[in-house]
């Protein structure tokens, strides 16, 4: 390997500065953040219709660099039932990576948690389950209350097994946040 070559160099050259030895450092590999999520889209489809209204959070270059480019406020009709589908993307990659699909495949260790404040503004019911009958939250149903304003927090809990033992138990407790976004919500 290259190492032996270098060792012999150093033994031969002593104090000489080895300018020519730095050929690999100047060839950095592209960064490889496997866990990156740059885009969160919420698709609300009113019951009985097929065209969703969508709201998004986007930070196409990931953490750091430029600030997020989009953080929509959610506006929904009062006392209406919607289906809610979540779409996650990594737009920093070419081609754009579908994170939603990966969550679907790993749903035994993921849980979406939706928290509305004030609580009456919107209620959420899970529409999917993993193999152990625990909720996931990629699809679900929401029911808005009376008109008002508040916030709608979307969390994706990554509840990976600890020491080979599953920790997901249907509650938000275990694991850590992969997504934690608080959208402004207006019900009118």
């Amino acid at each position: 390997m290259k190492m032996n070559q270098k060792l012999s160099w150093v033994l031969m050259l002593g104090a000489t500065v080895l300018f020519s030895q730095c050929k690999n450092a100047d060839n950095p590999e592209p960064e490889d953040p496997n866990e990156l999520i740059t885009t969160v889209r919420l698709h609300f489809t009113q019951q009985g219709t097929t065209t969703p209204v969508s709201f998004a959070w986007r930070d196409p270059d990931g953490e750091g660099g430029n600030p997020p480019t989009q953080f929509d406020a959610i506006t929904l009709k009062a006392n209406t039932t919607y289906t809610l589908e979540i779409e996650l993307l990594d737009e920093s990659k070419t081609p754009i990576e579908e994170i939603t699909q990966e969550i679907e495949e790993k749903k035994e260790e993921h849980l979406f948690v939706f928290t509305t404040s004030p609580t009456g503004l919107l209620t959420y019911t899970y529409g999917d389950q993993d193999a152990r009958g625990l909720p996931v939250g990629l699809t679900g149903t929401t029911r808005t209350g009376n008109a008002g304003t508040g916030t709608f927090k979307v969390q994706l809990r990554h509840q990976a097994p600890v020491g080979g033992v599953a920790v997901k138990d249907g509650t938000p407790g275990p694991g850590s946040d992969d997504v934690n976004l608080t959208f402004n919500l207006t019900v009118q």
């Binding site: 500065v17 080895l18 300018f19 730095c22 690999n24 450092a25 950095p28 590999e29 960064e31």
Partner: peptide, 23 residues
């Protein structure tokens, strides 16, 4: 005394620090 140092760092994975070489 006279002392010199030459080093280079190769980095892979999640972005944290860059590759570098220094003397």
């Amino acid at each position: 005394g006279i002392s010199n140092l030459y080093q280079y760092n190769l980095m892979q994975g999640r972005p944290l620090i860059p590759n570098f070489d220094q003397w």
